[in-house]
């Protein structure tokens, strides 16, 4: 289905994000040990690894939801410290969390603009501009080709796939510099997955937004990602470019570089039932 060819990332594309030596413990649980990742302008980076490898924790540190025990984050050449998700969003880092972070009791359009509401002055009061948010949400969802019964309906009435689409749309809406997607395809059917992958592919073509994508399916990784980082037991065990590596090669590298348990897990992700 990949009819368009995406030109490879320019070798001199600047590094927009560097997370170095990040460690994180939750009490006795070690989630991340000395993890370093690098993201270049316009690059789509796949973050893979078995369940509990620490992928979500790493991106929640990037989004400001968790604070790292050790390590630094350098964004656009400056060292940054995010005390809360507000800080990260203010720096142009948008995250679609694995749990989607949608508010079931609020309407679709309120969810779309949560944390960056439009206001209007009324009798000297700063009130929500619901009409503008409703129109903008509808317009934007239309542009992205996402159809839902109504932007007025509360999110708890939507299907899992529809919710996932809303969460993705919300993250792209504010034209972020860095977009982080934690398993954005989990609840999607084949066609919806293809649609979200198409949105990512469009971003990749323009090379304006840098993307970190957590997915499990290696076909999808090779379709939309420039590079792949394999996280294992809280460490980056492999960093490879998808252009220089074939799927088979990748599996071989993963096998040779890691213990048997991880190989089995990795292989099962690629070809379920084969190992």
């Amino acid at each position: 289905m990949n009819t368009q060819t995406i030109p490879p990332l320019a070798p001199d594309a600047p590094v927009v994000l560097e997370m170095s030596n990040i460690s994180k413990n939750f009490g006795a649980v070690t989630a991340l040990v000395d993890v370093s990742i690098k993201l270049r302008q316009g690059e789509v980076l796949a973050l893979v690894g078995d369940n509990g490898a620490g992928k979500s924790t790493l991106i929640k540190i990037l989004s400001g939801f968790h604070q790292p025990d050790t390590g630094t984050i350098v964004s656009q050449g400056k060292e940054v410290r995010f005390a809360s998700p507000r800080d990260a969003r203010a720096q142009g880092i948008e995250t679609v969390y694995q749990d989607l972070a949608l508010i079931g009791d609020l309407s679709v359009f309120h969810n779309m603009f949560l944390g960056r509401e439009y206001h209007k002055r009324f009798l000297g009061l700063n009130l929500l501009d619901n009409r503008k948010m409703r129109e903008q949400a509808q317009l934007y969802l239309d542009t992205l080709g996402i159809t839902i019964p109504s932007v007025n309906s509360t999110v708890d009435l939507l299907s899992g796939g529809q919710r996932q689409c809303i969460a993705v749309a919300r993250s792209i809406y504010s034209s972020p510099k860095i977009l982080v997607l934690d398993e954005p395809l989990a609840a999607l059917g084949v066609r919806e997955s293809a649609h979200v992958l198409g949105l990512i592919q469009n971003l990749r073509k323009q090379r304006q937004v840098s993307v970190i994508l957590i997915v499990h399916n290696y076909n999808q990784i090779f379709e939309v990602c420039d590079r792949i980082n394999f996280l294992h037991s809280g460490e980056v065990a492999l960093d490879a470019s998808t252009a220089d590596t074939s799927e088979e090669e990748l599996i071989r590298i993963v096998k040779s570089g890691l213990g048997t348990r991880a190989i089995e897990a990795a292989a099962a992700e690629v070809r379920p039932g084969l190992v």
Partner: peptide
């Protein structure tokens, strides 16, 4: 690739 079309078709299958 025509994301718009795919999505429309996909979405109409799900509804409230």
């Amino acid at each position: 690739m025509q994301p718009t079309k795919t999505a429309r078709a996909g979405k109409s299958a799900v509804g409230v």
